[in-house]
Design a protein around this nucleic acid. Structure first.
Length: 416
RNA sequence: GUGGGUGUAGCUCAGCGGAUAGAGCGCCAGACUGUGGCUCUGGAUGCCGGGGGUUCAAAUCCCCUCACCCACCCCA
C-alpha cells in the first residue's frame, strides 16, 4: 500500500459537519460587525518578517520562537502571519485609509500560524475573526468592542462567559510600572521560579500571571499597575468600566492580566467561557502601533476571536437541510430520468441523485442509514406513466408525482 | 523548547512473554429478485504506528523514531 500522507502537525481539516457550525458563527459575527459599521478587509497571509518584529515585538515569544519564517526565491525574508492586526495596520497605512474617514472600522477573518506545540484548543494553523477601530481614542470605542463580542456570543446562546479586563497603561505608565515592579521583585529574586527569573530581565510584566504558587505568593504583595497609572490612563479606565456597567457587561477586573503582544496600551481584555483556561477572544487598545509603523498618530483598538476554540465550546444544534434522494432502477430509466430531474431542480433545495445501479432494497437501506427522509424512485413502470414514485421514509407512505409537477413537488417538500 | 500519557479491525477498546490476535459497534451477503428500519444465519476484517535490539519465542520487554492527546512556556 502506498504511504498515507497525513495533515502536517498542528494543521487540521474541518469536516463538513463542523463547517456548518463555523458558517453559523461566521455569519453571526459578520452580521453583528457590519451592523456596527465595520467593513471587511482581506489581507495577505504572508508579510515581511519585519512587520511582525516591529508590531508584535521582537522580544515576544510569538516572534522569537513561534513564527514560520522563510526566504522566497527573491531572497525576501517573509513570515506567515501569527496574527492579523499588524497586516491590517500595514494596509491601513499603505492605502492611506486615514484620509478617507475619521474613524475606520475594519474586520477580517482567516488563518493565522504559530509554530508551538499543539494541544487542546491550539493549533499551528488556527482561525481568527478580528476587528480593528482606527482613529478613536475615547474609551467608548474600547467598550464597543466588548459589546460586539458580547452580542456575538449571546447570539450563540452562550451565557457562562466573562470578560477579564485590565489596563496596562500608556507607554509612560508601562515604563514606570515596569521599573517599580522590577524593584519590588529584585530582592525576592531567589524565590522566583526559573522562568520568572528570566522574565525579570525581559518582560517583567509577565511575572504577574505566572502560575507557580511560590511566585504567586510574592506577586500578591507586588505593586498593582492601577496605583501607578497617570491621570489620563486612569480616567480612560474609569470611563471604560462605567460604560461596561451601563451596558450590563459581565466582566471581572484582573490586575494581573498581561498580554503577550507588545503593542497594547491602556485597555486590555480577554473573553473566557466557562471553566476553560484558554481565552476565546482577546484584544485591547494600541495607541502607538500605527505611528510606530510609520503612520500618523492614530489611536486604535481591536480584538480577535479564536474560532477553533469558540466553535469547540458552543453546542449549536445545526439544522440538517432537507434532502431529497432520487434513485433510478434500470439503465433505461436512468438514461431518460436524469435530464428530467435536472431540468426540474429548484435553487436552494438539496436534491441528490444516485446513478449507481443496485437493487431497490439496497437503495432504501442506504437512504435509511444516511437519514434521508424523502425518496424519489424512477423505474420502467414509472417512466411509462410519466411519474416519479415518491416514498416518505418516515411513515412509509407513497404517492405518484407527475414529471410536469416535479418542481412544484420539490418546493412543497422544502416548505413542509 | 520541557514533562506525562497513548498508538492493536472502519470506530471504541481488550489482550501486556507462549500456539492461528479478540469483543462490541459498524460493514458485506443471504433468508426477502421493485420497498428501508426489526429479527435470524453466514462472511471479511489487521505491516498490533515505523525501525532496531533482547529472547527458543515479542502486540507484550528494552532503545530509537514518528504521530496523536494532555500539561508547562506562550497564546486565540
Amino acid at each position: 500500500m502506498a504511504e498515507q500522507i497525513k495533515a502536517v502537525r498542528g494543521m487540521r481539516d474541518i469536516l463538513p459537519e463542523e463547517v456548518k457550525i463555523w458558517q453559523t458563527v461566521e455569519s453571526i459575527a459578520f452580521q453583528t460587525l457590519e451592523a456596527f459599521g465595520f467593513e471587511e478587509i482581506r489581507v495577505p497571509v504572508v508579510e515581511e518578517l519585519k512587520l511582525f518584529q516591529r508590531s508584535v515585538g521582537s522580544f515576544t515569544d510569538i516572534v522569537q520562537k513561534e513564527m514560520y519564517v522563510f526566504k522566497d526565491k527573491g531572497n525576501r525574508i517573509l513570515a506567515l502571519r501569527p496574527e492579523a492586526t499588524a497586516s491590517v495596520v500595514r494596509a491601513y497605512l499603505e492605502h492611506q485609509l486615514y484620509t478617507k474617514r475619521k474613524i475606520t472600522r475594519l474586520y477580517y477573518a482567516g488563518p493565522m500560524f504559530r509554530y508551538d506545540r499543539p494541544q487542546k484548543g491550539r493549533y499551528r494553523q488556527f482561525f481568527q475573526i478580528g476587528a480593528e477601530i482606527f482613529g478613536g481614542k475615547s474609551p467608548y470605542f474600547d467598550a464597543e468592542l466588548i459589546v460586539i463580542l458580547a452580542k456575538i456570543i449571546e447570539k450563540l446562546n452562550v451565557s457562562n462567559y466573562v470578560f477579564e479586563t485590565n489596563s496596562v497603561g500608556c507607554d509612560a505608565c508601562k515604563i514606570s510600572y515596569g521599573i517599580k515592579l522590577k524593584q519590588f521583585l529584585e530582592p525576592a529574586k531567589d524565590r522566583l521560579c526559573q522562568d520568572c527569573q528570566t522574565r525579570l530581565q525581559g518582560n517583567v510584566l509577565r511575572v504577574l500571571d505566572c502560575k507557580v504558587i511560590s511566585c504567586r505568593e510574592i506577586i500578591k504583595e507586588a505593586p498593582v499597575i492601577q496605583d501607578v497609572l497617570c491621570d489620563d490612563c486612569r480616567k480612560h479606565q474609569e470611563n471604560f468600566y462605567t460604560t461596561l456597567d451601563d451596558n450590563k457587561i459581565h466582566y471581572k477586573k484582573n490586575p494581573y492580566l498581561v498580554r503577550g503582544l507588545d503593542y497594547y496600551t491602556k485597555t486590555v481584555f480577554e473573553l473566557k467561557i466557562g471553566e476553560e483556561e484558554n481565552a476565546v477572544a482577546g484584544g485591547g487598545r494600541y495607541d502607538n502601533l500605527v505611528s510606530e509603523l510609520g503612520g500618523p498618530e492614530t489611536p486604535a483598538a481591536g480584538f480577535a476571536i479564536g474560532m477553533d476554540r469558540l466553535c469547540a465550546l458552543i453546542n449549536l444544534e445545526v439544522k440538517r437541510k432537507k434532502e431529497i434522494c432520487v434513485i433510478f432502477l434500470g439503465q433505461h430509466a436512468l438514461q431518460k430520468g436524469t435530464a428530467i430531474l435536472n431540468s426540474s431542480r429548484v435553487d436552494g433545495i438539496k436534491i441528490v441523485a444516485d446513478y449507481e445501479q443496485r437493487p431497490l432494497k439496497n437503495h432504501l437501506k442506504i437512504a435509511d442509514r444516511e437519514g434521508v427522509k424523502h425518496i424519489l424512485i424512477l423505474g420502467d413502470n414509472e417512466l411509462q406513466k410519466q411519474i416519479f414514485l415518491y416514498k416518505n421514509m418516515s411513515n412509509g407512505s407513497q404517492k405518484e408525482i407527475k414529471f410536469s409537477e416535479l418542481s412544484k413537488f420539490f418546493k412543497e417538500i422544502d416548505n413542509a
